[in-house]
Design a protein around this nucleic acid. Sequence first.
DNA 1: CCTCTCGGTCGATGCGTTTCGACAGGCTCG
DNA 2: CGAGCCTGTCGAAACGCATCGACCGAGAGG
Lengths: 333, 333
Amino acid sequence: MATIDDVARASGVSASTVSYVLSGKRPISAPTRLRVERSIRKLGYRPHAGARALASSQTNVLALMAPLRAGVNVSVIMQFVAGVVTTARKFDFDVLLLTQDDATGLERVSDGSMVDALIMMDIEADDPRVPVLAGLRQPGVLIGLPRDSVGLSCVDLDFDAAGRTAVRHLAQLGHRQVALVGSPRAVIERHTSYADRMLRGFTEQTAELGLEGVYEPCESSHAGAVAAVDRVLARMPGVTGLVVHNEVALPGVIATLRERGRSIPEDVSVVAVCPQDIALGQPLPLTSVDIPADAIGRVAVEMAMARVAGEQPTETRLLAAVLTERLSTAPPR
Amino acid sequence: MATIDDVARASGVSASTVSYVLSGKRPISAPTRLRVERSIRKLGYRPHAGARALASSQTNVLALMAPLRAGVNVSVIMQFVAGVVTTARKFDFDVLLLTQDDATGLERVSDGSMVDALIMMDIEADDPRVPVLAGLRQPGVLIGLPRDSVGLSCVDLDFDAAGRTAVRHLAQLGHRQVALVGSPRAVIERHTSYADRMLRGFTEQTAELGLEGVYEPCESSHAGAVAAVDRVLARMPGVTGLVVHNEVALPGVIATLRERGRSIPEDVSVVAVCPQDIALGQPLPLTSVDIPADAIGRVAVEMAMARVAGEQPTETRLLAAVLTERLSTAPPR
DNA sequence: CCTCTCGGTCGATGCGTTTCGACAGGCTCG
DNA sequence: CGAGCCTGTCGAAACGCATCGACCGAGAGG
């Protein structure tokens, strides 16, 4: 591999000049710059990442911790990941993927100076990884909202509002008995941030509007969907509005409702909380509150970059929940 | 951050001794080793990855290229990724995630000496990225089979055999008219390796056994599933055996068959080609040929590590296709 | 005409490791 | 008893880059 000295020699300048051509941190005359750039291309020169990191203490890599835990919906996770990676590239960063669900990975890549910033997903209310992340030298960004986020930036969909919006939509249509079919029990029990907030929004809004509301967790499989729907039907036979916050179970929920003689939206209205493509890929286009996974990933990276670059203080940004009306909701008959 | 010199000073030895304690490449007496190890723990010392990479030209990072293209099934991809990351950690490697679908990312991380090996997924028959990968300094491993894999190791499920096995199973049950519901058109048209081989296995085996076989691509949505099933039914009204190689469309295919009055397995038998958990998460447990994504990811890393470590020649390994009989197949009536 | 400034370039230094050659001392074997 | 050989340790030289201070020449300002 060609080194910066090879380039310098080939273009008759010193190594530092080549460095300045590359970084633009000092003015270089046009003719010199051209010569250097030509040598770079001719030699196929590319700076050695390690050497650069050593000299500048900047790696241009960020860590993304995406634990692949029980119950998490991988396709949604993947959308986050895609958003993060794509955006990172715009800042000329690469992404190191961590999937272990403890904090050792964080410390390893941070203390080893492998990354300039860290982004962490799937946050629980009292996530033990959060204080660890906050204690690291590099800035940290959370996708999700822990109870205490001191020293860290946070971004997420406003799941609280998502729950409220879904309920309000149903209430406006005239529904009085509504149910939330939520995340798998494992996710709930971890007090995963989004599930907690979703439930809170749903509960508070039903209470405020004087609706009857029930809540049922739902495993991510067909059988889980059947069971959850049946539990809802048993607890609330007159239910006419369903909020579903479980992408994987969605087809099963829809199928089971039909099997139990409830047609959508005539007998029961369904509001999904999921990425748009999933809402549109179902048997009928679902009224849904979009989870803009891609946008959330993008914002997370932007926050991280801001903190890497400057003295930007930490902040927490909640993306607005927007409901799109499609064919799965209607007034009760 | 503490450096190796801090550790050396704290334990009254030279820096090189500390280095040898860490690497074990030279014998160190027990008392010295103990003293050094204690200082390391006390100071929380962790070697600087960049410096280490510079001095040793080894990064302990591997690149994983997982293009997020149209039509690919993200949940399956994520399983591959999980397998790769988990296995990489066992070798003390981290994973850099690339998602761009061109070769620029490969060259960037390779030429920049950011990684010691590269793994690439979603391979097409004449994938333009393959020759680029083969030309890199670091070893490359493909998950999939290009037409020409010179200089590269390959690993994948034996999709050819998967197609044949599925057909044979149906034939043994007595089915004479069978259909393959496959990948989305976009995937086919790219000549994605697994889709090509699956189709070949299916086609050849039906021919050899004298069955009638038809093939239909299938978009990954409910609507796509409906359309594909209807096309199959139109072309082959007497079809009694279905091989489905499209995880996302699976629920739609099943629902549509029922809707068209075909019950499973009485009227039509269904063999899925998909990861096991998906086969089990459907309305009825499906007879399936497992796609062992996790194992494939693991093998890919093991091959990469072997090439990094030694002079291991390139090889291509196809994992056996095993069919598990469940409730979705039976003799035709 | 002299000084000041600024654009443009160079050398030297440092970043934190690994690794190679060297060396001291104790041991073995003839 | 001496040559040779381990064992355990050290010092120094890379590794490839960024960056700081210095330097030189040209133009501006007085």
